[in-house]
Amino acid sequence: MKYFGSGHGACPGCGLPIAVKTVLNALDGKVFAVNSTGCLEIISSQYGKNAWNVPYIHSLFENPAAVAAGVEAALKALKRKDEGYVVVFAGDGATADIGIGTLSGAFDRNHDILYICLDNEAYQNTGHQQSGLTPPGESTTTTPAGKVLPGKIGGKKDMISIAVAHGIPYVASSSVGYVADIRRKVKKAVKFEGAKYIQIHSPCVTGWGIDGEMSIKVARLAVETALYPLVEYEYGKLTSVRKIKERKPVEEYLKQQRRFRHLFKHPKGKEMIEMLQKFADENAEKYGLDLKKDEE
């Protein structure tokens, strides 16, 4: 049974449909999908060209968490909760920037929803503008690499910690590079009553500047360099991490993508790469990502 149709408008090699179909399949289509404005909405929900085979709603850019809370409240009041899980599909901009107010409200009230943040690290639908989840050093159209600036200055907002700080029962990160990981985490998440947050790293071929066939490889490199650690929290406690056998230097990941290419020739590029490497090292340390010899 297909819960998401072919013929949608995603770019060839886009990570979003991979994440979406994996989530929908993991839940056997028992899903009320709530979508924010953005790439996924545009590629899947044009009037008369709807790609969804589950009940779906799109309202605005910044309110998917609240809309989902409303759907959940209605199902509860109407005694229809058995019909399916309320699942949000929102982009990183909708999640970490413009919609963080409604997200925080829904987490605080602990609505029984699964919030999936599809993190392609910028506003890709409108042509690659920086979001709170754009990593430092990335050249976007609103943080372009110029003669002085080496792309985005600042950090990538730590939404995982923000979600954990709300005290919700389940928080995890995952990646389109590892669909089995997405599947396992989604199945696990819905067993918890209350708000669940899964942030899925999802390559954007046009924004990142990669060939479609490279999507999965690049997504995996983000994990293998510890730039995108795959972790799991239950009731605020770190319960599992995806270990890395031989951690790769961040350059291996960066050099594959047009959005970071300037770092290899920009006067401040070296500094930025070192900063990203430090960020990866800190992730490895914080989460204990490196597989030690005796653990093998």
């Binding site: 009320f32 309202s59 409303g70 959940e72 209605a74 109407l78 229809r80």
Partner: peptide, 8 residues
């Protein structure tokens, strides 16, 4: 909006 669309 969510609740109304869900039939409430």
């Amino acid at each position: 909006v969510g609740a109304s669309a869900a039939g409430a």
